[in-house]
Nucleic acid binder design. Sequence first.
DNA 1: CGCGGCCTTGAGCAATCTCAAATCAGGTGG
DNA 2: CCACCTGATTTGAGATTGCTCAAGGCCGCG
Lengths: 237, 237
Amino acid sequence: MLQSRIEVRPSRQLSPVAGHQSFAAENAAVAMGSRVTIPAGQTLFADGEAAKYCYKILSGGVRIVKLISDGRRQICEFALPGDTIGLEAGLTHDCSAEAVADTQVLRYSHAEVEAKLTHDPATAVKVCRILARNVEAARRRSAYICRMTAEEKIASFLLDLADRDEDDEDNDHVCLPMSRSDIGDYLGLATETVSRVLTRLRARKVIALIDTRDIKLLDRDALEDMRGGLAASSEIH
Amino acid sequence: MLQSRIEVRPSRQLSPVAGHQSFAAENAAVAMGSRVTIPAGQTLFADGEAAKYCYKILSGGVRIVKLISDGRRQICEFALPGDTIGLEAGLTHDCSAEAVADTQVLRYSHAEVEAKLTHDPATAVKVCRILARNVEAARRRSAYICRMTAEEKIASFLLDLADRDEDDEDNDHVCLPMSRSDIGDYLGLATETVSRVLTRLRARKVIALIDTRDIKLLDRDALEDMRGGLAASSEIH
DNA sequence: CGCGGCCTTGAGCAATCTCAAATCAGGTGG
DNA sequence: CCACCTGATTTGAGATTGCTCAAGGCCGCG
């Protein structure tokens, strides 16, 4: 069903770069938790592909993508350092995952995780929590994506990223590993709209663009006001 | 579509249970898997409330809701017969759940499910699958909600419902337990737009409105075309 | 029969998209 | 080191979708 509509190809054909393709499937006999570096643009796994691995992000960033037939795409999630992706897969992945920048990950064998799941309650609980958090994250995102104006979306997005950024204590500094069009496809906005809103916020001195992909939050309160009352979630469990 | 559902414990046919107020919290000492009837509009659980129960829907329907401060709301999910809700909660629920029509559910104690989770691998696997499906569903919804026109959204929505409807084999008949404004808040559309699109589809003889809440799909192919290539997911695992 | 909730329909408007072009940034080869 | 190329970003102008506001219709219910 899914396969018949969406063009699902093995990841090696999706990847435009020769010589670097197919990180997900190249080496089936890898020990659990091996560290892998994935260059920007590379596919970790593709929609419809057999689920061989899941990944914990160490650095960089990964976009979780769903494609619609005519070229439109929706980015369902940005996985940042500390996040684990691919666990939700059954036999096959239901989304593609692509590095938005050079990305380091820990790679786990999906089969082994599944096996462990059935024998080790502690693992099972951990997996459940990750999945529960994914559900929560996806829902919260729905809430702020569907019913908000472009400005509210961007404000929420920036605040979310600022709060998620692990190794940044002051929280007024956001690093965007992804492109404007990635942000657009995440928030349901045209690339141009993303750009325009950022420009507008800069003009109002709410943010400063240190660099295209590096933003400083000058007026957090203004952003919070824009967000429109959907507070960030507290932790689960 | 949803195959293996949680059967945490065989459902016993129990007493008709209690009055009509405060269904979520009225009786902490209820045995697992008790059957409860919830009148339309009632709240099963509220955002932020301690997670006491999860529910398996038997009939009717439930909307999973997130509220934004100024009165806007986002419906994250419609739970229909066969679906299980509330499992993703940690200590507290992250969304509200409200019956969109008179609804029968099986109610499970959240604490007992959690306890069982840590001791019984089979339960753990089941819960993981439900959660994984939730993740998949939320993502698929994102994809069709953010980047689609009003018509595409409605088409997808109708097809999804038709496919989900358990006790309807021919699949060309959709029953909408929810109001137009519920649909709007689910799809990110104004109530009026939902209505207008349905009217337009009827004018084109793609659907027939047997009754406000009862739709017949006359031209499934046309709807599939509108959907724009995001096919329904097949089952997981 | 009148009331209150939904639902439908209409008209104008605003936010956002699309198309188009200019600018900028990074990498490459001379 | 510089010119050049490619892709990303920004900016502008007009088109368009879907929203808001407003009114009217339908239906169940007291």
